[in-house]
Design a protein around this nucleic acid. Structure first.
Length: 861
RNA sequence: GGGCGCAUAGCUCAGUUGGUUAGAGCGUCACAUUGACAUUGUGAAGGUCGGAGGUUCGAAUCCUCCUGCGCCCACCA
C-alpha cells in the first residue's frame, strides 16, 4: 500500500459516522446474527437515560465502559447482547414539560387537561429520545437497536400491571393512610430518596402551650404546633417523670384547642433544648412513629395545597405555612409564652426535582411492603432479606467491593416504599373503584361505573423491572431464557439506591433470580478542578463537542483510562486532546506498517494470525523479532486477564505502553534497517487492532478494513501464541540500555564538547546487534573501534557501557544477597516466620547469588 | 449522630492476597529532527508514599491513634 494513499493525520470526523452506519447495516449488534457457534451468553441492559434532554459526560462514560465490555465479549465469541432504552422519568419529565408550558404559554398542566398534557409530554419525550439515540451512536455504542425499549411503552406497561397485580394479590402492595412526603410544588408524593436537604437558617422558639402548662418545648415550626397531640420526654428524664401519662385537655392555643398527653419515648434526646418534644403526628415522620407507638391521635393541620386547614383553627386557617409560622409566633409572644428565640441552622427537606419544601402529610397512598414476611422456597423471607441475600451469597457482586457494605446498610434500613404519585405521566395504577368495590387487574374490569385510580406509579417501579421486561417478561421468551440474569449492570454509584436497590428488590421477588451477576459502579466525571459539572458553574464539557473536536475514540479513552470503579475522575479538554494524539499515533503506526510491507492484506491468513508468525518468521528471527513477539504474547495474556476482571483502565494503560513504547519507539525503528519483517509487523499490527478495538472501535475498524476487507468487530479475540521468550526480553533490555547510555553520552558531549568518549561494548549478544545500536543511537557518523567489541569513539572519556552496567548490577546484587543472608539467619534463629516465608526468601537469595556469579564470571573473562 | 472512603512526583492518578531499586500520563527543563507521526523522538530533574506508634525477617500495602479532606445515610424537634 502506498504511503500517499493514507492521510498523514487521522481525522475522526471523516470516518466515524460511515463506520457506525456500516456496523448497523451489518446487523451484527444483534446477537442472533453473530457468526459461529456461541454457547456462552453475555448481556447488559443499558441504564436507560431519562428522556429529559441530552446526554452528558456521565452518559458518555457509561456508554464507553459498557461498549468496551460488550465488544470484548463479542470478540471472545460470546452471544452478546446490549439492550438500549430510555426512561420516562415521570417526575423529571413532567416537571420539565410543565416548566416549558408555563414559560411559553403561561399555563399549568391543569389548564390544558390530562389528555392534552400527556400528548405534549409524549412529543417532548420523543424528541428527546431521538437526540439520545443519535448521541449513543456518536459514541460508537454497539447497541442492538432492534430490541430497543421504553420504560413506558405498551409492553412495559403490560409487565408493570402484571407485576402490580401479583404483588397486590400476594399482599406485598397495599393501600394505606400514612404520613408521606408531600411536594406542594410538584403536587405529588415523593419517596425518601427523592428528598434533598438544604441548609437554611431558622428560628428555634422555646415556649409553653399555656402559662400553666408544666413543660416547655422547642420548635422551628410553631405553625405545626396547632396539630400537636402529645409531648414526648425521655423515659429516664426525672424532670418530667411526674407528668408522664397525664393528659392536659382543652388547652386554648392559637385560635384552636389542643389536648396534650405526656408520653415517655426513648427516641427523645433529653439533652436537646428542654428535653421535651412537642409531637405533631400528622406532620413529621418521626412524630408519626412516636404517635403509633403510643396510640396518639393524629390531627392534620396542613393541606395538600400547602395551606393551613380548617382544623388548624380560626387564627391560621387558609394561611400558607410560612404566614402561619409568623402568626403563631406573634401569638405566642403576645401571650408571653415564649421563653427563648435563637437562630439555628436547619436541614430543610426539599423535593429533588421541583425544589419545593417537602411537607409530611397523612394521605391515602399505595405502598410496597418491603419488610413483610412471606414464604419462599420453604423459607420465611422479606423482599429486603431476599435482596440482601443475593449479595451476601455472592450471586451478585458489586465493584468496588466497599459498595457492598453500603448496599447492606440500605437493605437493612429500607422502609415501605411509597409507589404512587399524583402525576399524570407514568404507569397508571391498575386499580379501579366502583362504590365500595376495588378491582386490581391487568386490564380494566368489565361493566359500567368503574373509575380508575388517578395516580401513577413511581418511575423506579418500572425501572426496577428493566432487566427482564426488556427481555420479554411476563412472556417466557427465548431472550429471557438466554440472557437473564444479565451479566453486568454498569451504572453510576449515585443511583445505587435509586435504581440498583429497586431492581434487586423486584427481580429477586418476581423472578426468584438476581437481575445481574455483577454491579460495576463508575464515578462522577468532574471538571479539571474536581468540581461537579453544572450549568451554574458553566463548566460543562459536552461529549458531542469532544467527539466533534477529537473523535469518539479519543473521548472514550479519556473517560476510561485513569479512572477506577467507584471513584470520581477529572476531565479536561487537554486530556481528550492527549488521547487524540494517541489515536493519531496508532494511525501513523499503521500507516508506516501498511506502506512498508508488500501484501498487507494477505500476509497473515485470517483466523491464523498467531501461528503464521512463527511459520513465516521461522529461524530468521532476530533478537528484536523474538523480543517483540514475546512482548506481544505477554500483552495479549495480560490485557485479556485484565478485561476479564473488568480492569479497563489498567488494560488500556498496558496496551498504550506496549503500542507506543515497545512497538513504535523500538521495534518500528529497528524495522527501518532490519528487513524481512513483514509477517511480524503485520502480526503485531493485526493483534493490536483487535486488542484496541473495544477501546477505540472507529479508528481500528477503519485501519482494519483498509487492508483486510472484513469486519473487525466480529473478529476473534487474539490468543497467546506461545512466543514467550524471557531470554530474548532480557537480552533486548540490555540492547536498550546500551543505546540509551550512548544517547546520554552524546548529550553529555554536547554539554561538554571538549571531552572525547570511547564506548566499548563487549557483551556478545549485544555485539550481534551492532547495526541496530548504531542506527538507534544515530552513530553512523562515528567511527567504530575494532576490539574488544564495538568501540565507539565519541570523545576522550573512556566508558565501557556493558562493563559499567554489569558492575553496577553486581554491587546491587551483592548488597541484596548480604542483607538477605543476615535476615535469613535471624529468621532461622527465631524460627517464628512460617517455613514458606523462609523458603521464599532463600529462593530469591539463591537466584540473586546465581545471577551475581554469572556477572562475576562475565566480568573476569 | 451512623456509615464508607481518600491523603503516593508540581498536577491527575496506578500500585489486587506484604517481597529485590515505588510507577504512568500531563506539566517543567535540556537535547534532537530530510526517514510513519511536530498530534514527533531521547533524556533529566522531581517522592522521608499525610504524621506517630505497632505487627513482621521485611510495610506505600496489615493494625491502632492523630491530622486534614471528601461522599452517603439519618434529620436536632
Amino acid at each position: 500500500m502506498a504511503k500517499q494513499d493514507i492521510p498523514k493525520a487521522y481525522d475522526a470526523t471523516n470516518y466515524e459516522d460511515g463506520i457506525y452506519a456500516a456496523w448497523e447495516a451489518s446487523g451484527l449488534f444483534n446477537p442472533d446474527n453473530l457468526p459461529g457457534d456461541r454457547p456462552e451468553a453475555f448481556s447488559i441492559v443499558l441504564p436507560p437515560p431519562n428522556v429529559t434532554g441530552t446526554l452528558h459526560m456521565g452518559h458518555a462514560v457509561m456508554l464507553a465502559i459498557e461498549d468496551i465490555m460488550v465488544r470484548f465479549a463479542r470478540m471472545r465469541g460470546k452471544k452478546t447482547l446490549w439492550i438500549p432504552g430510555t426512561d420516562h422519568a415521570a417526575i423529571a419529565t413532567s416537571t420539565k414539560v410543565e416548566n416549558i408550558l408555563f414559560k411559553t404559554e403561561g399555563k399549568t398542566r391543569h389548564d390544558v387537561g390530562r389528555e392534552e398534557f400527556l400528548r405534549r409530554v409524549e412529543a417532548f419525550a420523543q424528541d428527546s429520545h431521538d437526540t439520545i439515540v443519535n448521541q449513543c451512536k456518536k459514541m460508537g455504542a454497539s447497541l442492538d437497536w432492534s430490541r430497543e425499549a421504553y420504560t413506558l411503552d405498551a409492553k412495559r406497561n403490560h409487565a408493570v400491571n402484571v407485576a402490580f397485580k401479583k404483588m397486590y394479590d400476594d399482599g406485598l402492595i397495599y393501600r394505606g393512610h400514612r404520613v408521606i412526603n408531600w411536594d406542594p410544588v410538584g403536587q405529588t408524593t415523593i419517596s425518601d430518596i427523592e428528598i434533598v436537604y438544604k441548609e437554611v437558617e431558622a428560628t428555634l422558639y422555646t415556649f409553653r402551650y399555656a402559662k400553666d402548662f408544666p413543660i416547655a418545648i422547642s420548635t422551628t415550626r410553631p405553625e405545626t404546633k396547632v396539630g400537636d397531640t402529645a409531648v414526648a420526654v425521655h423515659p429516664d428524664d426525672e424532670r418530667y417523670a411526674a407528668f408522664v401519662g397525664k393528659t392536659f385537655e382543652n388547652i386554648p392555643f392559637a385560635g384552636t384547642t389542643i389536648s396534650i398527653t405526656v408520653v415517655a419515648d426513648k427516641e427523645v434526646d433529653p439533652t436537646f433544648g428542654t428535653g421535651a418534644l412537642g409531637v405533631t403526628p400528622a406532620h413529621s415522620l418521626i412524630d408519626a412513629d412516636i404517635a403509633a407507638r403510643h396510640g396518639l391521635a393524629m390531627k392534620q393541620v396542613i393541606g395538600a395545597d400547602g395551606r393551613m386547614t380548617v382544623d388548624a383553627g380560626t387564627l391560621v386557617a387558609g394561611q400558607t405555612t410560612k404566614e402561619a409560622r409568623d402568626t403563631v409566633a406573634a401569638w405566642l409572644r403576645a401571650q408571653g409564652l415564649v421563653e427563648g428565640e435563637e437562630k439555628t441552622m436547619q436541614n430543610l427537606a426539599t423535593a429533588e426535582r421541583s425544589g419545593g419544601t417537602v411537607e409530611p402529610i397523612p394521605m391515602l397512598q399505595w405502598f410496597m411492603a418491603v419488610r413483610k414476611e412471606f414464604e419462599r422456597n420453604g423459607k420465611t423471607v422479606t423482599m429486603c432479606s431476599m435482596m440482601r441475600d443475593a449479595v451476601e451469597s455472592g450471586k451478585t457482586k458489586i465493584v468496588p467491593e466497599r459498595s457492598e457494605k453500603t448496599f447492606f446498610q440500605w437493605a437493612d434500613n429500607l422502609r415501605d416504599w411509597n409507589i404512587s404519585r399524583q402525576l399524570w405521566y407514568g404507569h397508571r395504577v391498575p386499580v379501579w373503584y366502583r362504590n365500595d368495590e376495588t378491582f386490581v387487574g391487568i386490564e380494566a374490569p368489565e361493566g359500567d361505573g368503574w373509575t380508575q385510580d388517578p395516580d401513577t406509579l413511581d418511575t423506579w417501579f418500572s425501572a426496577g423491572m428493566w432487566t427482564f421486561t426488556t427481555l420479554g417478561w411476563p412472556d417466557k421468551t427465548a431472550d429471557l431464557a438466554t440472557f437473564h440474569p444479565t451479566s453486568i449492570l454498569e451504572t453510576g454509584y449515585d443511583i445505587l439506591f435509586f435504581w440498583v436497590v429497586r431492581m434487586m428488590l423486584m427481580t429477586t421477588y418476581l423472578m426468584d433470580e438476581v437481575p445481574f451477576k455483577l454491579v460495576y459502579l463508575h464515578g462522577l466525571v468532574r471538571d479539571e478542578q474536581g468540581r461537579k459539572m453544572s450549568k451554574s458553574l458553566d463548566n460543562i464539557i459536552n461529549p458531542l463537542d469532544m467527539i466533534a473536536k477529537f473523535g469518539a475514540d479519543a473521548t472514550r479513552l479519556s473517560l476510561v483510562i485513569g479512572s477506577t470503579p467507584g471513584n470520581d475522575s477529572k476531565l479536561s479538554e487537554e486530556k481528550v486532546a492527549g488521547y487524540r494524539n494517541f489515536t493519531n499515533k496508532l494511525w501513523n503506526i499503521s500507516r508506516f506498517v501498511l506502506s512498508s510491507v508488500e501484501f498487507p492484506g494477505t500476509l497473515v491468513p485470517s483466523g491464523a494470525v498467531d501461528a503464521s508468525a512463527t511459520k513465516v518468521a521461522g529461524n530468521q528471527q532476530s533478537l528484536a523479532d523474538r523480543w517483540i513477539l514475546s512482548r506481544l504474547d505477554t500483552v495479549v495474556a495480560s490485557v485479556t486477564k485484565k478485561l476479564d476482571a473488568n480492569e479497563l483502565s489498567a488494560a488500556g494503560e498496558e496496551l498504550r505502553d506496549f503500542t507506543w513504547n515497545d512497538f513504535a519507539d523500538w521495534y518500528l525503528e529497528i524495522a527501518k534497517i532490519e528487513k524481512g519483517k513483514d509477517a511480524i509487523l503485520m502480526t503485531v499490527l493485526e493483534t493490536l487492532m483487535k486488542l484496541w478495538h473495544p477501546f477505540m472501535p472507529f479508528v481500528t475498524e477503519q485501519i482494519w478494513s483498509s487492508f483486510k476487507g472484513t469486519t473487525l468487530m466480529v473478529e476473534a479475540w487474539p490468543t497467546v501464541a506461545g512466543h514467550r521468550d524471557e531470554a530474548a526480553e532480557r537480552e533486548f533490555s540490555v540492547v536498550q540500555e546500551v543505546v540509551t547510555t550512548i544517547r546520554n553520552i552524546r548529550a553529555m558531549q554536547r554539554v561538554e564538547p571538549a571531552k572525547k568518549v570511547v564506548v566499548t561494548v563487549d557483551n556478545a549478544s549485544v555485539l550481534a546487534h551492532a547495526d541496530v545500536i548504531k542506527w538507534l543511537a544515530r552513530l553512523e557518523d562515528i567511527s567504530l573501534g575494532d576490539k574488544p567489541g564495538i568501540q565507539l569513539v565519541l570523545g576522550d572519556m573512556d566508558m565501557v557501557v556493558e562493563r559499567a552496567r554489569l558492575e553496577k548490577e553486581r554491587d546491587d546484587l551483592a548488597a541484596y544477597v548480604a542483607s538477605t543472608d543476615a535476615k535469613l539467619a535471624n529468621v532461622e534463629f527465631t524460627s517464628k516466620a512460617p517455613e514458606k516465608v523462609v523458603a521464599g526468601m532463600r529462593a530469591k537469595r539463591d537466584e540473586a547469588k546465581a545471577k551475581l556469579d554469572a556477572i562475576i564470571a562475565q566480568l573476569s573473562s
